[in-house]
Computed example of a mutant assay.
Amino acid sequence: MKINENTLLEGHGVVLVPYNVNHVPRYHEWMKSPELQQLTASEPLTLDQEYDMQKSWREDDDKCTFIILDKQRWADPSVEEEQCMVGDVNIFLTDPTDPSLAELEIMIAEPSYRGKGIGKEVTRMMMCYGVTKLGVRKFQAKIGLENQVSITMFKKLHFQEVSQCPVFKEVTLELTVDESVRTKLLDDAAHMKERDYRQTCSSRHELLSQ
Rank of each mutant, 00 (worst) to 15 (best):
G119N: 06
V15L: 00
A189H: 06
R114M: 02
F92L: 10
V171R: 07
L45E: 11
G135V: 09
G130T: 02
I108G: 01
V181P: 02
L69P: 03
V171F: 02
S180D: 15
T200R: 04
L9N: 04
F139T: 05
I108T: 03
Q37T: 07
N90H: 12
I68N: 01
C165D: 14
R204N: 01
D178T: 06
I143E: 05
L104R: 01
H12T: 11
G87S: 07
E174L: 01
L157Q: 07
M125D: 03
S42A: 14
G144T: 09
K184L: 13
T97P: 00
E105R: 05
W30M: 08
P166A: 10
V162G: 01
Q38P: 00
M125F: 01
R204D: 01
T46G: 03
D178M: 08
D70C: 01
Y129K: 02
H28F: 14
T183C: 09
F168V: 04
K155M: 08
V24A: 11
S56L: 15
A41P: 00
M107I: 12
E43T: 15
M127N: 02
S112W: 09
H23N: 13
S56N: 14
S100T: 15
A41E: 08
K120Q: 09
E43A: 14
Q54A: 12
F139C: 03
H23Q: 09
R124M: 14
R73L: 15
E5P: 00
K71E: 02
Q210H: 11
A141G: 04
E80M: 11
D196R: 05
R182G: 04
R114F: 03
K169M: 13
R198F: 13
G11H: 05
T65Q: 15
D48H: 11
D98L: 07
S202I: 06
Y197I: 03
G130P: 02
M125S: 04
T94N: 12
R198H: 12
K184I: 08
G13S: 14
R26M: 10
F139P: 02
Y51N: 08
